[in-house]
Design a protein around this nucleic acid. Sequence first.
DNA 1: ATAGTTACTTGCAAAACACAAGTAACTATT
DNA 2: AATAGTTACTTGTGTTTTGCAAGTAACTAT
Lengths: 152, 152
Amino acid sequence: MNNTVANKTKIKSCRDEARSTCALANGLDLVGDRWTLLIIRDLMFTNRNEFGHFVHSGEGISTNILTDRLERLLQCEIITKLPHPTHGKKNIYQLTDQGLALFPVLIELILWSYNTIKDTFVPESVYQMMINDRETLYQKIKTRQPLFVLDL
Amino acid sequence: MNNTVANKTKIKSCRDEARSTCALANGLDLVGDRWTLLIIRDLMFTNRNEFGHFVHSGEGISTNILTDRLERLLQCEIITKLPHPTHGKKNIYQLTDQGLALFPVLIELILWSYNTIKDTFVPESVYQMMINDRETLYQKIKTRQPLFVLDL
DNA sequence: ATAGTTACTTGCAAAACACAAGTAACTATT
DNA sequence: AATAGTTACTTGTGTTTTGCAAGTAACTAT
């Protein structure tokens, strides 16, 4: 048995039925689509944390898809949703520890994509830290300091 | 400019039009779906390398989807396709260097999934190497030694 | 009181997917 | 040489997901 990590603290697979017990297959059921990791990218690397921020982040996600993905991520406890301190209609989304743990996945996928696909870019400041000082980058992200403060 | 890696050696984004120049978004357009990385998992960790192997690998991919994904991966030069040495109808699929470079992405996603999602598993032998000796694991994979020889 | 913002929901067309069945080329069996 | 089986697909059909545009209720700013 390799099941050395306590199962209690883990989430359920969030699909009605998992297609297999393969860790990868289950992971892909959660984050294996074209939008989910982009939302997590915004939460991890930038100060975007509201519904409208994601809509206007430039990738062009439509609002019904965004609603669906946020709902799924909430159910799986990859993100949390808190009421905005001053604006009554808004909510603030944040990565949970399980969401923050996606850091290495994002880093590796970003690097692979950048190294492999033509005409793709990574913000210079993030790229330098990914290459030269990934540990510091991870610490910043774990303490929820956005690397990239955008005027939203 | 962070574009320090020669663009010449890179693949085109393989979509009719990329939605953005974000490396992550482009990467997700290639491998951000529920099947592609499972095919690559088989190619990387097991001796499955024929069409029929993927069909019967247990996840239940249907043949039209498999055909489509293999075609996409071929176009993007993540895999190659060679005629089978003895069986005239079969082909052998193999990861290219760009496909092999997905190793860290797969490892991190497998670990995240296993640590995060209940009742998921990773073959013991692979798990031990992922944790204790990832470098040796990577060398084995780069030299295309399957870790996991299955009776197919 | 009014206009604008925000986070959604709804409706509809298009695309992707799942499933079953079919097919042409090849291989193995007799 | 004939037949049966295998293999890698393709095709057809129904269902699900997605994309896009428009709408809406609650809230905020003027």
